[in-house]
Nucleic acid binder design. Structure first.
Length: 481
RNA sequence: GGCCCUAUCGUCUAGUGGACCAGGACAUCAGGUUCUCAUCCUGAAAACAGGGGUUCAAUUCCCCUUGGGGCCGCCA
């Protein structure tokens, strides 16, 4: 009775380390994490490595690194001891074995000796009859003696759960009632053998053992949930609450495939996306605050989050929106913060020029969409590109005029009092007005940047400083002479 | 094929029976700002899948059809 008041909100991310950190997994993690924070609950990381063949340590590391990068910290996990560990399923085999034996003893599960070929033949036969394919039940009533004898002889047998043929209904926090006819499912395999449980079973045991209160996972698990609920009932476990998130779709509307994002979530990091932009973006794939805000912080998301507001239909992954969000979040960063984040994106040879980098960041902040853009945007400040002299000539101008203008500009810059950039602008703008803005500003800017497109000339002078600017204008004059 | 989930602009979405000839954002297009590019500003185009009900009134509730998706593994 007091249990009602004691019930702690505990959610988990249960990735299987059989591949790099997938975008969908990250999004599921985010929703679990947000829910936990919003409810004052705990977020737990459980590694589901029961597929011994495909599970690899490097994938676990990739997932952990990605979660850390996103800032989705967990209270309990393989690397953080909690009261319900271990948190790696391969280290919990004894626990599963115990429950497996229990089910077999209670005749709720049984050994099945059918070959894969037999099963597949059954399957095909049922499909061709227009039926829902399921296990035929051949080994269900083998006597205990017979089973033990065959096991002794070393025959291979999996463990199947005797699925009761009932109509099951469960409530989903996002979709309300979902029902399933278990008579259509058949006896599912829950373990390869006593020492090797499968996902259906291990997950149920662990959710119970780890006191998971809410299972928040992708919609692709909807048809697994009834099976797991039947398992819970057979084991006498309480039923956690379920919430099935809409799937993230590729632009062709199929489940987001490796083909579309052929990478780990961590590659978004190396491409220069901010974790806050990623989180903002992932949260908005299926959720939205009440008002029309688009740029939102984690703090705000946590505060306003509500499972009830989650969309039911799948959402298409839209890279353009991610880029836009990223640019917006970059602008919100302080100059110091941005400098810090840019660290790994600045080539080694530039790093000593701290002051120059600082100035560039200050001026270029709103041109940076991804941190990785910085290199290309900043390049010309460090090294003047080798440009063609014709580029210096404004479209309505000519060589002679341009040369005279550049010489005048050179003198004006030379006369400039140290660091009086505002003063310089006040002197040059009237000249530009007189000669034509393009006539003056274009060659100046090209001389300074060596590029068709760049920030304005005064900004560049301010970043470069008087000496370097003069040198560059001199180069332009020489080029055009 | 069976079962389940789902359905508002190209995309993410607001909308919970009348306040909606449907709002915001990204993308697109057209202007403006600007020496250029980016930014920024203004504007435009762009959707309730179809058919039945229920109701005085349906984007909103119900049913059917259609579309989309997921699952049907000794993967998770």
């Amino acid at each position: 009775m007091a249990d009602i008041f004691k019930t702690e909100i505990r959610v988990r991310l249960a990735p299987s380390p059989t591949g790099l950190f997938h975008f969908g997994t990250a999004r599921t993690a985010l929703f679990n994490w947000i829910f936990a924070k919003n409810q004052g609950g705990k977020f737990i990381l459980r590694v589901e490595d029961t597929d011994f063949e495909r599970s690899e340590k490097k994938y676990e590391e990739d997932i952990i690194n990605g979660l850390k990068w996103l800032g989705l910290n967990w209270e309990e996990g393989p690397d953080i001891d909690g009261s319900y560990g271990p948190y790696r399923q391969s280290e919990r085999l004894d626990i599963y074995e115990k429950y497996l034996k229990q089910l077999i003893e209670e005749k709720k599960a049984f050994h099945c000796f059918c070959s894969k070929e037999e099963i597949e033949a059954d399957r095909q036969a049922m499909i061709s009859q227009g039926l829902s394919p399921k296990y035929g039940g051949r080994c269900q009533n083998l006597s205990e003696e017979k089973v033990n004898e065959r096991l002794r002889k070393g025959e291979k047998a999996v463990i199947r759960f005797k699925m009761p043929a009932v109509r099951l209904e469960f409530s989903d926090l996002i979709r309300d009632k979902i029902s399933a006819d278990m008579g259509l499912i058949g006896d599912i395999v829950i373990a390869r053998n006593l020492k090797s449980p499968l996902f259906y079973f291990a997950g149920v045991v662990d959710d119970y053992a780890m006191k998971i209160s809410h299972v928040i996972r992708g919609e692709d698990h909807i048809s697994n949930t009834p099976k797991q609920i039947m398992l819970q009932r057979a084991l006498g476990f309480p039923e956690p609450q379920y919430a099935h998130l809409p799937l993230i779709l590729s632009p062709d509307r199929s489940k987001l495939s490796k083909r579309y994002i052929d990478a780990s979530l961590n590659d978004f990091q190396s491409q220069g996306y901010l974790p806050e932009a990623m989180n903002n973006f992932m949260a908005f794939l299926g959720w939205h605050p009440k008002d029309d805000r688009e740029i939102i912080t984690m703090k705000e998301i946590i505060k306003e989050f509500d499972l009830k507001r989650i969309q039911k239909a799948g959402a298409v992954f839209n890279l353009e929106k991610l880029e836009w969000l990223n640019a917006q979040h970059i602008r919100k960063l302080s100059d110091n913060d941005l400098t810090e984040r840019l660290k790994n994106f600045i080539p080694e040879k530039w790093r000593l020029e701290k002051e120059l980098i600082g100035k560039i960041i200050k001026f270029e902040k709103e041109r940076i969409k991804k941190l990785s853009d910085f290199k290309e945007i900043a390049e010309f400040f460090f090294e003047l590109p080798n440009y063609d002299k014709d580029m210096l000539i404004w479209k309505t101008s000519n060589k002679e005029k341009t040369k005279i203008i550049l010489e005048n500009l050179y003198n004006e810059i030379k006369k400039m009092a140290e660091s009086d950039y505002a003063g310089l602008k006040e002197i040059i703008m009237p000249i530009a007005e007189a000669w034509g803005r393009g006539e003056v500003l274009w060659p100046l800017r090209v001389a300074l940047s060596g590029k068709e497109t760049s920030p304005g000339p005064f900004e560049i002078i301010e970043i470069l400083g008087k000496e370097k600017s003069l040198a560059r204008v001199k180069i332009a004059i020489n080029k055009i002479s």
